[in-house]
Amino acid sequence: MKSAVVQLPGLNRDRDMIAALTKISGNAPITIWQTETEIPDVDLIVIPGGFSYGDYLRCGAIAARMPVMQAIKAKADAGVKVLGVCNGFQILVEAGLLPGALMRNASLKFVCKEIKLEVVNVDTAFSRAYEQGQIIRCPVAHHDGNYFADEETLKTIEDNGQVVFRYAAGTNPNGSVNDIAGIINAKGNVLGMMPHPENLIEAAHGGADGRGLFASALDVIAA
């Protein structure tokens, strides 16, 4: 499995993401700069977290209009897996690759802590290493993770099983509607999530609960 990590000014979780992908797949991902219009053949494209363009205008808004996003859209349309974490999730919704919007946390505070996630759909390319309903630990670090979608959109994504991760009871850190932490597109190849699974993949991190997501997406689930 070949993977790629997108780099844009202000993204700062790219190193952690590269380390996670390298450790779990055994191969280093290629990196893609924001001005690139051609993306080499890869199986997974990851947009990592950070503060692209200083969160100016709206989080992810400016990054979502960079040339590389057109190339990513084309790859997503062709079925390539795309994962956006934190700012990456914000960029995917701003680019229209995922429905809804991510707004300022209801508390108005930046949250940096560990929360619990419930895996509510294991029938996806990103979550099949987990058990249905499994509760996993995961760090979050964001100011604008409050997921919002209008009622009709919300009903559609709930009915289609597009909600993949929910903040487990009592741990919603940002006021997200329906405790939504991560969603997938209707086609099942683009996933966005606010928590940082790349920061909980080995003993040195204090746990490896995030590993299953990469094992799923990179196709390295132990038989």
């Binding site: 205008l57 709206r58 808004a61 400016i62 209009r65 919007a101 707004m103 919002f148 979608a149 209008d150």
Partner: peptide, 9 residues
């Protein structure tokens, strides 16, 4: 439509 507003919200 393209940038200044996010018409979802």
């Amino acid at each position: 439509e393209k940038l200044l507003a996010n018409t979802v919200i």
